[in-house]
Structure formats: structure tokens, C-alpha cells
């Protein structure tokens, strides 16, 4: 195990604000592990504890067998940390930032160039530009290079895809796949549920508590009900009508469709009953089909 957290508790404001309550999980060597949850779930607190920047109130955390409190210096030698807030030097150029971080950790760009090559070549045309003048996607690539250049055994990436567009998000996950092939252990957090499926394992986290830990596939398989997607001509009214219906157990909007679960019983009969009911309420072009849940469906289910 590369990362082990046991019963971590962290509060702020003299115990008034509970950021993380009794969180335990571990990450295996070479694993791409995702912490998935909204703002305020406690993701950043967990990262700061692992980066030895914050002391837990209770519990223990370790990286490569080194304790996050007692052996913090050992941990700092081994991790590459990309904080959620852009933390490079805005008034240094791309190249100067990278050089700075390499030098800080007694290495050079040349020595570990292989690690960053695929990513760095994308920003190299702008290497003389100041970091503060880069686009969101480029800043993120530079920050990743700076975390990688010291050849860490563990990468801590706190919301690397927040605030960047979906094209850059896809590119970023491609980069992570590439890094995985180099056997770097990666702990990454995101509020985007659709990114969860790209991880080996994930922890769904909300209000400082872990709702579920498993591979994305298994979390989806654990969804207890048959899920259906429904649509009709007038989606906002359909949502309200479905919520009123006695056949419906849960109903959430999911883009083009609403996702629903039905009360138990003969589901084919229930489907027919529901369609009749909606037709009676004036809905037209009603479509209903059984579907596999997404991670977001699972998250909503676990929250309720």
C-alpha cells in the first residue's frame, strides 16, 4: 500500500467545523485512485494531510510506510503535489518555473525529461511566456510538469480539472493514463462525476464522510434498483408530474432524460401504468427504457 489513511478526523475553528470525519482508505502502488465529491466534501483537507501541510485531529495517515506526522520529511521527498489553487510563480516563465522546481529537489529538467516529455512538448512552444499569462489548460499542464519533474512515487492532484473546459479535461485524463503506465501512484480529486469511470478505484465523499469505496464498475453494479430513463415532449413538466406519481420511487433530471426508479412489483406492468398516467396528464411522445446507472446516479442514491 502506498497510501494508508486510518480514521482521520479534522475539524476547523476549534472543532466547530467538521471537515473530515473518520475517513479511512488506502491506495495501492501504481493505482489511479479518485476522490469524487462536491465542494466542501473534505477532499482538499485529505490532500493537505497527506502532503504533510496539515495535522489531523485524530487518526493516522502514511505514505510509502512513512507516518504523515512523525516522518513528514520522508514524505515530502516522495510526493508531487498539485494544489487546487494555481500555485506556481506567475511572474516566472514556463521554463523558469520548471527549472525552479527541478532545482529545488536536487534534479534537473534533463534528468527527468522522460517523465514530462509528453506533457511538456504541448507547452514548450510557450516556454518563455510568464505562467500568469497562460490559459487555464496550459497552467494545469505546467503545474503537472512541476509536480512530476522531481520523479515522485506519489502524485497528489487536487481538482486538476476544475474550471477547465471539457476538451482540456479529456486531454488531462489522457495524460494521467500515460503516467499510470509509468507506475506512478496517483490520488486525484474531482467534483465531476463523469470523470470517476477513468479511475481504477474511487471513493465517493460528501460532508466529510465516505459514502462508498470501490472500482467504478462495482459501485455501479451495487446500485440496488432497476433504473429507467424517461422523456416526453415537455421535460420540465414531466419532472413535476413524475415526482407526484405513486409509481415512482425516485426521479432526477439527467440531461436529455429523467432517471427514475419504480416501486417494487411487476415492472413491466408498472411501466405501462406510468405511461398511461403520463398520457392522461397530456404528455406526448413518451419514451421509457431501462438503463445502467452512472456514477452520478449512485452518488445521488447514496446521499439520500
Amino acid at each position: 500500500m502506498d497510501v494508508v489513511l486510518k480514521n482521520i478526523v479534522k475539524t476547523y475553528n476549534k472543532g466547530k467545523v467538521k471537515a473530515v470525519s473518520d475517513v479511512s482508505f488506502s491506495v495501492e502502488k501504481g493505482e489511479l485512485f479518485g476522490l469524487i465529491g462536491p465542494d466542501g466534501a473534505g477532499k482538499t483537507t485529505i490532500f493537505r494531510i497527506l502532503a504533510t501541510l496539515l495535522l489531523p485531529d485524530e487518526g493516522t495517515a502514511s505514505v510509502n510506510g512513512h507516518d504523515a506526522v512523525n516522518d513528514y520529511k520522508e514524505i515530502r521527498k516522495r510526493i508531487g503535489y498539485m494544489p487546487g489553487k494555481f500555485s506556481l510563480y506567475q511572474d516566472l516563465s514556463v521554463e523558469e518555473n520548471l527549472n525552479f522546481f527541478a532545482t529545488l529537489f536536487n534534479t534537473s529538467i534533463e534528468e527527468n525529461y522522460e517523465l514530462i516529455r509528453d506533457i511538456y512538448t504541448q507547452i514548450e512552444p510557450f516556454k518563455t511566456r510568464r505562467a500568469g499569462k497562460l490559459s487555464g489548460g496550459m497552467k494545469q499542464k505546467l503545474a503537472l510538469c512541476c509536480a512530476l519533474i522531481r520523479s515522485p512515487s506519489l502524485l497528489l492532484l487536487d481538482e486538476p480539472t476544475t474550471g477547465v473546459d471539457t476538451v482540456s479535461r479529456k486531454e488531462f485524463w489522457e495524460m494521467l493514463k500515460g503516467l499510470k503506465e509509468q507506475h506512478i501512484t496517483i490520488l486525484v480529486s474531482t467534483p465531476y462525476m463523469d470523470e470517476a469511470t477513468l479511475c481504477d478505484r474511487i471513493a465517493l465523499i460528501q460532508d466529510g464522510e465516505i459514502l462508498s469505496i470501490n472500482s467504478p464498475r462495482k459501485i455501479i453494479n451495487q446500485f440496488p434498483d432497476q433504473l429507467y430513463a424517461v422523456k416526453s415532449q415537455k421535460m420540465s413538466r414531466l419532472l413535476a408530474d413524475l415526482r407526484q406519481s405513486s409509481t415512482i420511487s425516485s426521479c432526477n433530471s439527467f440531461g436529455e432524460y429523467h432517471h427514475i426508479t419504480l416501486h417494487q412489483g411487476n415492472t413491466f406492468e408498472m411501466q405501462k401504468k406510468l405511461i398511461n398516467e403520463m398520457e392522461h396528464l397530456g404528455h406526448t411522445q413518451i419514451e421509457i427504457k431501462s438503463i445502467a446507472p452512472t456514477i452520478e446516479d449512485c452518488f445521488i442514491k447514496l446521499m439520500s
Binding site: 462536491p38 460528501q206 420540465s236 433530471s253 452518488f299 445521488i300 446521499m303
Partner: peptide, 17 residues
């Protein structure tokens, strides 16, 4: 709705409607 949990995100859209 950036960073908002999936349940609250949907409640937010109810307000928009």
C-alpha cells in the same frame, strides 16, 4: 453550479425553471 453536489445542482435548476 460549479462544484455543487448533484442533488443541490438539480434543485438549483428547479429554481431556474
Amino acid at each position: 453550479t460549479g462544484g455543487v453536489d448533484p442533488v443541490t445542482r438539480r434543485q438549483f435548476w428547479d429554481l431556474i425553471y
